[in-house]
Amino acid sequence: MRRSDEIIFIGLSITSSWGNGHASTYRSLLRGLHRRGHKVLFLERDQPWYASNRDAPILPFCQSRLYADVDELRSRFTPRIRAAAAVIVGSYVDDGRNVCDWVLEHATGVKAFYDIDTPVTLARLRDDSCEYLAASQVPDFDLMLSFTGGPTLQRLERDFGAKCARPLYCSVDVDQHQPKDVRRDIELGYLGTYSDDRQPALEELLNEPARRMPKRRFAVVGAQYPPHIAWPKNVQRIDHMAPGSHAQFYGRQRFTLNLTRADMRKAGHSPSVRLFEAAACGTPIISDEWVGIDEVLEPGKEILLASSTEDVTRYLDEVSDEQARQIAVAARERVCAEHSSVHRAEELERYLNAARGGPERRKVIGLGDAERAVAAP
């Protein structure tokens, strides 16, 4: 069988960003791979909640195909899976265990799992409640890619037998996310889907400051917030915003709030896609604190950290516009240099090449342009 140079992803969704951050992560990464000359196919299950909120049905940087169930996935795509240079299954794929079994049985190239929810996954692997991955499947993948870095990678290898665990943080397309020349009419904004474990922090770090500053304007954008939440009158609520509008929204904010889910915060080393997007858009960030955040952005210089309402109100009152601008400029420079979509694609190239048994500095054969050398960082 002749090996193709195609990289195939099977993920939660790339065509709809409604209620999930996976779409933004995949779009940035696959755009970077496209710019590096790769041929990419993304497969996702056709779900009604995504079908009614499909904000990117056609993507210029990859092929995307929908399937109804695992039986259709098998019947339509087994030959391409067998021929692909690499097949990467993502977390939270519906009926993911059966999808993993299919990939592990038929793929002949690099077989990888990309976990965008690693701390959640590890907790569920321990009690066998993870619906998209079984603990017994972990050692069978050539490569475990993780949204979370740090000690979590050692746990994957030590406790679950992963052959090779590597960090693959989310990234940002710096061409799509740039500073906008718009009026900053929102004092503090937040962009994120509702989650039970994030809501207390949103209450303390945005809603309560809004109550204490009734003459200033705040905004929260995201889906699935329960109707019983009592929002302050000066907090604007928007249910969903397509990624193409994110830069404009960030541009309107004097500061933006970054919040991390409890499992991610506990594990540390889990920078969100919103963190990188906001930085690339030139908006100063106020963030909750977790281990490893200082390795991504330098506190006080590139990001402001808050653990209380008082921290937030102090920043809003005391940080001048010029100081805020300097923080935003420093953060944008750092993110553009280290966390762009192309940078992340280059990391993935190195990981896939190493998983195939080649030195990480050698040319990638069968993964894009055979004449292009992949430089190590």
Results as ranks from 00 to 15, higher is better:
A51G: 03
E349Q: 08
I116N: 10
R35W: 09
I286E: 02
I10S: 06
S171W: 13
R372V: 12
F255D: 04
D115G: 10
G282C: 01
Q326Y: 04
P214R: 08
A345I: 14
N353H: 12
N207P: 00
P179N: 09
G368F: 14
I229C: 07
V110S: 07
Y132P: 07
V342D: 14
W18Y: 15
H177G: 09
S129E: 13
A107E: 03
R158K: 15
L145M: 00
G11M: 05
Y250P: 04
P232F: 03
S24F: 04
P232N: 11
D317V: 00
A56G: 07
V220Y: 07
G109S: 03
A306I: 08
S13V: 08
A324Q: 10
Y132W: 01
S287Q: 00
F77S: 12
G222E: 10
P209C: 11
E105L: 10
G21I: 11
E131Y: 12
K163E: 12
R356V: 05
D288K: 02
R265Q: 02
H228W: 13
V172D: 04
T152I: 13
Y132Q: 08
G244M: 02
E346T: 15
L348C: 13
H269N: 11
R212C: 00
W231A: 04
Y250N: 10
A306W: 09
E310G: 12
L188C: 06
Q154P: 03
F249T: 10
S245C: 03
G282Y: 01
A278Q: 08
S17R: 08
R74N: 12
Q178D: 05
T256P: 03
N98V: 15
L304K: 00
L104Q: 12
P377A: 11
P359T: 13
P139C: 15
S28V: 01
N353V: 08
N234Y: 05
R31Y: 13
V138T: 14
L156W: 15
L188Q: 00
S245E: 08
Q236W: 05
I58E: 15
P57Y: 04
A280G: 08
A210T: 00
M144A: 10
R80W: 04
V220T: 12
A84R: 10
N207C: 15
D128M: 13
V235S: 02
A337P: 01
D288W: 05
C281N: 08
F42C: 00
V93L: 11
C100W: 09
I8F: 13
D5A: 14
D175M: 14
F276E: 02
R155C: 06
E360V: 09
V291G: 06
D140H: 13
R350P: 02
S136D: 15
P226V: 02
I365Y: 10
L304W: 11
A230Y: 09
K39L: 11
L191V: 00
Q176H: 12
G292W: 09
A51F: 12
R65T: 06
L259E: 03
L12Y: 13
H240F: 05
R184D: 03
S52R: 01
P299C: 06
G358R: 15
R2M: 15
R35N: 10
V40P: 05
D311L: 04
G192Y: 03
E203V: 01
L29A: 04
P299R: 11
R314F: 11
V296E: 02
V342W: 05
V172S: 05
V335M: 05
E203F: 07
A135P: 02
G21D: 09
R80M: 05
T118C: 04
T260V: 08
T260L: 00
E204R: 07
R361T: 11
K363R: 15
